[in-house]
Amino acid sequence: MMKKIFTRPKALTDAAFHYCPGCTHGIIHRLVAEVIDELGAADNTVGVCPVGCAVFAYNYFNVDMFQASHGRAPAVATGIKRALPDRLVFTYQGDGDLASIGTAEIVHAAARGEKFTTIFVNNAVYGMTGGQMAPTTLLGQKTTTTPKGRDKDNNGYPVKVAEMLSTLDGAAYVARVSVHNPTHVNKAKKVIKKAFEVQIKGLGFALVEVLSSCPTNWGMAPNEALKWLEDNMIPFYPLGVYKEPAEVK
């Protein structure tokens, strides 16, 4: 007797991801979809995709989806959630989308305590547009717009989103995870699930920052990229739960 022990989540379509080899977006998509499945919520979920590498996420999530303009996913999600308070609503945004052009939207959605969940993928670079500096690019990190490395005097400092948003009273749950190895992938899934449960319980805004790799724009092999993430990003962007309501502890 054969037993199926691993399958594609129902909340993902059959479409093949367009992401580059070694990109961790695919893992993160899968984690979100598995959580939606486990919550039995696919029929009741509305997702919002960003402008960035995940712009086509609506082709991959098998739930009702919106494509939002650059940075505005939290405003779009606000409109959806206010109109349909009993739906599970999430945004899926990259670092340029959320932490650069969309800072006003994410800060105020969090401050209002909008009851949706944001998956924030931080890979320290603009992917889709060609490897430019992101608000989360590390000091010294080379990108196509910081060819000699990010310089604090010229470019300022990277933005620590999880820390920043956790200062807001409306943000109920804020955590940072990574997906650079299987242990952390499993941890990330638990945190993402909690971020959706916070929404279901109506506790307020929930955000999970996921440290992610971009082998293509970092100019590395996928395994080197994961190592670079671990060695360089995690020391600057410490993992952990920054804010957690008692109800889900």
């Binding site: 303009s69 405003a75 409109g79």
Partner: peptide
């Protein structure tokens, strides 16, 4: 900017 995108969500 946010207002019109909230409209997009609700619409």
């Amino acid at each position: 900017v946010s207002a019109i995108n909230m409209v997009y969500g609700a619409a």
